[in-house]
Design a protein around this nucleic acid. Sequence first.
DNA 1: CGGGATATTGATTGATTTCAATGTGAGTGG
DNA 2: CCACTCACATTGAAATCAATCAATATCCCG
Lengths: 231, 231
Amino acid sequence: MLIQTATHGTPIRPPVAPPLGALPQLRHDPVSDAFQAAGVPIRFERDAEIYGEGEPVEHFYQVVSGAARTYKVLSDGRRQIGAFHLPGDVFGLEAGSTHAFSAEAIVGATIRMASRSTLETMAARDVALARDNWSRTAEKLQQAEGHMLLLGRKTAEERVASFLLEMSERVHNVSMVELPMSRQDIADYLGLTIETVSRTFTQLESKATIELPSSRRIALRNRSALQRLNA
Amino acid sequence: MLIQTATHGTPIRPPVAPPLGALPQLRHDPVSDAFQAAGVPIRFERDAEIYGEGEPVEHFYQVVSGAARTYKVLSDGRRQIGAFHLPGDVFGLEAGSTHAFSAEAIVGATIRMASRSTLETMAARDVALARDNWSRTAEKLQQAEGHMLLLGRKTAEERVASFLLEMSERVHNVSMVELPMSRQDIADYLGLTIETVSRTFTQLESKATIELPSSRRIALRNRSALQRLNA
DNA sequence: CGGGATATTGATTGATTTCAATGTGAGTGG
DNA sequence: CCACTCACATTGAAATCAATCAATATCCCG
């Protein structure tokens, strides 16, 4: 079931200038500390599966460099990306026994993997770590809730605006955003088609809200226009 | 900001036969136990606000009888219901300091409220309780993730089918489902309009997949047809 | 037995999808 | 160094699903 494309046991230093989230900004908190201690960095190639839906939860993950996506697919192939994971982000932190999502590298990525049982043993002793696990999961839940509002109630233009602001915020609000993901990934994250995403970008560009020097680089020219769309 | 319609300090016994989820089925686990010990049952009238988005998290909640909804609204009033809470369900269990959602009673409801600080103090001492807080939040996250797939990628018919199966499962898979919520609530949960929800019900009825003895009572006649739509 | 809220049904519109080219850019090999 | 190619992205035209606008219909509740 799992197509293992990862190069195991090869702790590789993060590349000098990864596309999005150039600064790993590893938070100094119990979970990050635990990852420093118990986590092993593994290299995943572009599109490599990190884990699959339904598989037992054996590890927790933290992006060191690169980017990952977690998603669900319907039987006929329709895909919904639940979240993008950028450097510093922890994912796969599930309390249940099996993964509810699949995870893949979006680009070549280095991901720190910590064994679930180790982290759980540590959490059973360290109250702060246990609390932090909860806190991180609760944070993901809030993100998911915000994303439900987007998927259920926002127009295409509003979705794209929200996406751009989110990406910009996640790389310290720089106005030139370098996207690691394809239009298909964006579409599947926003619940749209690639054509609609593309058209919306063009439309925002014609209103001088953004600029598209290349398909993966987007300059936010009128942030308040985007914020207005963010409702 | 908070329209306090709740009748505080009135521990009321759960009604004999609440509409949906007639059996409170309070789980025997650390959180439920903590609610038994530290929680106070409060009566909320139909549409009464339980807490509002942005308010500080001061309590955690468990539905004793009745039902509640948690939702977000856009500035122009568009609403997305993130979840319905039925007897036994815990909600408002947020690790952050403010509520990301608003919560209201859907029908008259008795809700057990436990003070956040009390539960957190208990969790700091009791590893099992801390683990259970995490576990419950993780479960909510999985539900939210499933709901994202629905909102982002499913057709109206599939959404309604998923909703009916979900409601049925939550009341022990009985085929006659008694809905506590209005069409507007259902629409806002599924990211549709009331008209589309209504038309889809009618359409499923004409295919003999369901039966609608009244607008709030739905009989699932062909569960496998619904499951097929659930993809 | 009203009367107001809630739900259903109908007609039409419209945003997004689908189908279909066309354009662009990065990597490859001649 | 430059054609060539393949994947990815953009653009256009048509179709479609759900939303909107607009009547009824039904159900509570007083």
